Amino acid sequence: MTYASLPDIVLEPIIRNALMEDLGTYGDVTTRAVIPPATTYDAAINAREPGVVSGLQVARIAFGLVDPALEIEALAEDGATVRPGDTLMRIRGKAASILSGERVALNFAGRLSGIATMTAAFVKETEGTDTRITCTRKTTPGLRVVEKLAVLHGGGFNHRYSLSDAILIKDNHIAAAGGIRAVLEASRAVASHMMTVEIEVDTLDQLAEVLEIGGANAVLLDNMDTPTLAEAVKLTAGRVPLEASGNMRLDRIAEVAATGVDYISSGALTHSVRTLDLGLDF
């Protein structure tokens, strides 16, 4: 299976910034003090618990930026399921270079694997339905591109990347603009044929109004309980895709997917994950 990736040049600025943060103004003073410059070693990134791995591409780039002469061998792909003890990557070359890139590589790979692992757990709860799991913009500032990539590695889908991707009308837009009809008509007046318009509703009455007016490509059902979501699916009858959002915990996903909503979006996929335990061993 081929998993999602991005060109290295897209990821390099993010990783370079992280390396600069870690190396500081004077580099790795510990390594420079205790490791003779000519010392070489073989190292491996190993999984210490089960999960879905992500961030191996990022780790490879990190080591390569520190020292292009390092030999890096990937033994697993981003998106693969791993078990404790699995070796994911081997790095050979100067010990000082490996040690200087270690923490940045593991910080990325551990966090991104945590996102992929949680996403995979959410996706598993939708088995037997057509519901797709998506992330949100609740990402770590500066790391959105890699965190959304990790969601793909976990089998999920991406919501919009930025405010410029699509028109998503939230409750505050509706309040400030004068109501549902006003925001829908204004949006359709400026949206190109390539621009999707989604609108958030909190009640079935609001959903009925949106369906009557028309003009939305999708409707976000915000903070509805499961019976109300089921009623929303019946009311819509397939006329527009429905996205359930708000309080979408892992223990709710199966019952929400069973209502027939098209998408479930959850900020928890990126803002509430636990880092997967990966280690670099010499």
Rank of each mutant, 00 (worst) to 15 (best):
T140A: 11
P84S: 01
M89R: 12
V66G: 08
R60E: 14
L152V: 06
E127G: 03
I133D: 02
A59W: 01
A109W: 12
R90K: 15
V104M: 07
V58Q: 04
D67P: 07
L143P: 06
A59H: 02
L143G: 04
T119W: 15
I98L: 05
K148S: 11
E73I: 14
V146L: 06
A96I: 10
V66Y: 06
R103W: 11
A150D: 13
G64M: 07
E147R: 04
L75W: 02
T126Y: 04
L152S: 13
G101D: 00
L106D: 03
M118I: 08
V123D: 05
S113V: 04
K138M: 12
G110D: 01
V145R: 12
H153G: 06
G55M: 01
Q57E: 09
T81K: 12
V151Y: 14
V123A: 08
T129F: 05
T87D: 00
T139S: 13
L143C: 04
G101T: 00
P84G: 05
S100V: 10
I91Q: 05
S54L: 03
A116H: 11
L65K: 02
N107W: 13
P141R: 02
R92Q: 12
L56K: 03
E102I: 00
A109H: 09
G55F: 00
R103V: 08
L99F: 09
T126M: 08
V123M: 06
R132L: 15
L70N: 10
I133V: 10
K138R: 14
G101I: 03
V104D: 07
C135I: 02
G114W: 08
L149V: 01
T87Q: 11
K148W: 13
G110L: 05
G101C: 07
S100R: 08
A62Y: 04
D86S: 06
G93D: 09
A80E: 15
I115Y: 14
E71C: 00
T129Q: 12
I72H: 02
E71I: 11
A59G: 05
A150R: 09
D67S: 14
D130I: 00
V123N: 04
G110S: 15
D130C: 03
V123H: 03
G142N: 11
D78S: 06
A105Q: 04
A80C: 07
V82Y: 01
A80D: 14
L56V: 00
A105W: 10
E127N: 08
A76Y: 03
A62W: 05
S113H: 13
S100I: 07
